[in-house]
Design a protein around this nucleic acid. Sequence first.
DNA 1: CGGTTCCTTGAGAGAACTCAACGTCGGTGG
DNA 2: CCACCGACGTTGAGTTCTCTCAAGGAACCG
Lengths: 249, 249
Amino acid sequence: MAFDSTPSNRCKPNCAMCPAGSRCFTGGVSADQLNIWNDAVLTHMPVFPGNGALFSAGDAADNVYLVRAGCIKSFTVDQDGNERIRSFHLPGDLIGLDALARSHHPSSASAVEPSQVCVIPRDRIAALALQSPVLMQRLLQRTSRELSTALSLSGDYTAEQRVAAFILTMHDRLASGNDKLRLPMTRRDIGNYLRLATETVCRVITRLEHQGVLVSRDKTLKIENRDRLRELAEPVGLVEDYEELALAA
Amino acid sequence: MAFDSTPSNRCKPNCAMCPAGSRCFTGGVSADQLNIWNDAVLTHMPVFPGNGALFSAGDAADNVYLVRAGCIKSFTVDQDGNERIRSFHLPGDLIGLDALARSHHPSSASAVEPSQVCVIPRDRIAALALQSPVLMQRLLQRTSRELSTALSLSGDYTAEQRVAAFILTMHDRLASGNDKLRLPMTRRDIGNYLRLATETVCRVITRLEHQGVLVSRDKTLKIENRDRLRELAEPVGLVEDYEELALAA
DNA sequence: CGGTTCCTTGAGAGAACTCAACGTCGGTGG
DNA sequence: CCACCGACGTTGAGTTCTCTCAAGGAACCG
């Protein structure tokens, strides 16, 4: 999908009104830093499932995107047409961090559910190095976090370990505040992401339900035994030990 | 292994004499930027296999390391003692990019063969944001590259696809200049990294040898049919489309 | 030279996959 | 209003790729 950046279609975001709230990449920065970021953001726009991709693998990596609402998946498609989901991006997440050292996107991105994204031209991202060391550090930290997560998940685990880790991570990232979570993506997408067949994801969830670990109803899960999930997911090692790295002045 | 940073043991590196050469993180930067980097580097030191880890998972992430020579693996160990290799670091690579948003290392690191590393205190890395936008961008780009690689490899592929992609990548990274490459790590380590049993790695290499794709002799491989390897590795999608991102002034 | 580690090959086992069928849900149109 | 359709979720049966177990040979080291 070609991104229409004609002035009439532009809409500057107002971070104060953003549905992503404090989960945003900019969460907690000072007002003047937020202004720098706001200047870097070109516009925001809706993205819908089935309406074509936000961008496709091989496209020039001209922009970085920031999820305001919804869920975006990034994926590759091999020569046989097999889709391989690399990440799910939730509100506050940046899309395209894997392209910061490339001229072209290594993966495609499209909406999993109706979503909204901010658009940040990459030359403005590059300019942040000079304008805002704080935001540059944030960017580096986000990329490092994604790297850490990707390395954790790239290990060899059983279907149960994978699914348990996925549910815990999603619950954490979606931050519902209670023990329920609504998975925006299909079982097929979950399986694809976790390197499991759709049926295997179903079977594991059913098994966990029989064990009283959770209750599944359509796309909504209720976690009944979080400790057991943690126990299962332990080998994956998705520790959440993030710090806000202080900028040495 | 506790890192001995007593003055008597310190040895400032001389980038001009570095065996990593242009593959280094600093490759191609201007003389004054190189000086800033040199000031950030605390010392360099040897690391040997079987002599304990360079650092262990859970250690305070006080330093980042840069491989001068040899090969370092980073890995986790789960509760049952299973080692899971996350990355191999070759000359010029930074170690600890997955800890830039953490206070503690998520993984351990130890030498695969006799190696040398430069030690860079993390507070000096943080200070680069203010001192050297260029180096900060480099750091971001390296992290982004590692992210891209990790995401590629985290997909679901056959043993053959995995091994083919691994051989091609190592050949590329080791930059021998001919069609031969010496793998510094054991079959066991390769298998662990690729989520394959040692035996499976052996069998795949044997199969590729029978097909005339390569010749294997101990740790040395000779690539006979690079196109076939590329064909096999295609789904993994390890495109090497890196650019040197120009710093918008 | 023993001892150890690594590499290689074979045979059987198992976890996840594929294929297939069925129920549910939501949208569409006769 | 309801039959029809497609997408999704779930469950069962059989298959397959890789793993585990086992063992022999090669290389390295004290």
